[in-house]
């Protein structure tokens, strides 16, 4: 029972990270009509930025600002590439996948060639913090607490923005019909850039919380997280935000349970196996495609 509770807490905090990334990924899919496969890699890259900043400064505010800022900036910097792509090929999400997958190769190679000589990075213990609750097998580190509560707050803020504010209404309008949106005077390019910025903000927040929760990162982390995020989006139904919320949490919990009860190196394969089975049985996803 203790293992169960411990892994449930683990799973919830891990799951809320997945949810944030699935939301950011789906937002760009809905508004900008692209598959940004490199999005999780950008998040890992801003974890590296966070790690680098920690070497030079102990000012927490500055570190957070730098890693979130870098994630937003790099994400927005990819926008002109996708805009040019749309001009050449029309809004073809398959071609955007080909391009964003090339971006992942570039990002991963930069991390494995230039940063920390390609070795995994470890965050200082001061940054990670001590465990908040220690009760038998149940330990809840401050990193996990940040991830869980920060994740919930960010998800609530995201849905508030999307469904209760003027900007959110505009984003939804473009995702439904971008031509009609421009006919009624909504600037489409500006709004698309805003969607990249929001996704970048979510990614930056996730990077901070992941660095506190995992305590380390490696060049291969991007590929791992990337495949999980996108497989989750498909299992939930591409572009389905509420489905992504449910499936992201489910993935986190499943994975933690697999870690708790099964030999280590197979746990990833098991979550992939489950997603594969769902994808084969229901290629359109559990909650239906919305994109």
């Amino acid at each position: 029972m203790e293992v169960f509770i411990a892994q449930l807490l683990n799973g919830l905090s891990l799951g809320s990270m997945y949810v944030l990334l699935v939301l950011g990924f789906n937002l760009m899919l809905l508004v900008a009509k692209i598959i940004q496969f490199a999005y999780p890699h950008l998040v890992v890259l801003s974890m590296y930025v966070c790690w680098g900043m920690l070497k030079y400064t102990s000012n927490v505010f500055l570190v957070i600002l730098a890693s979130i800022g870098s994630c937003i900036a790099i994400n927005i910097a990819t926008e002109p590439i996708f805009r040019l792509l749309a001009k050449r090929h029309g809004l073809d999400i398959n071609v955007s996948f080909v391009v964003s997958m090339s971006m992942t190769l570039v990002i991963t190679d930069i991390m494995s060639h230039l940063l920390n000589y390609g070795f995994p990075i470890a965050f200082p213990s001061k940054w990670i913090g001590k465990s908040v609750i220690g009760f038998g097998l149940i330990t809840f580190s401050s990193g996990q607490a940040y991830a869980l509560f920060g994740g919930i707050a960010a998800v609530l803020a995201f849905f508030y923005l999307l469904y209760r504010t003027r900007q959110g209404r505009v984003l939804r309008a473009i995702s439904e019909n971008s031509l009609l949106s421009s006919i009624i005077g909504i600037p489409t390019i500006k709004t698309r850039v805003i969607s990249y910025a929001i996704a970048g903000l979510l990614g930056g927040l996730t990077a901070i919380m992941l660095s506190k929760m995992l305590g380390s990162a490696s060049p291969a982390l991007g590929d791992f997280v990337g495949m999980k995020i996108i497989a989750t989006s498909i299992v939930a139904g591409l572009g389905n935000l509420k489905g992504g919320l449910v499936c992201g949490l489910l993935l986190g919990i499943t994975e933690s349970m697999a870690i708790g009860y099964l030999p280590g190196s197979w746990s990833n394969a098991i979550s992939f196996m489950m997603m594969l089975i769902v994808m084969l049985i229901k290629p359109e996803g559990l909650f239906g495609i919305k994109a």
């Binding site: 598959i35 398959n94 084969l280 290629p283």
Partner: peptide
């Protein structure tokens, strides 16, 4: 099941199977 699936689902099915085989 994926004979007529959308391109992107086929992509991710492929990547997932590669990953599972590699882990095996």
């Amino acid at each position: 099941t994926i004979g007529d699936a959308p391109c992107f689902t086929v992509v991710i099915v492929g990547l997932t199977v590669i990953f599972i085989f590699k882990t095996a």
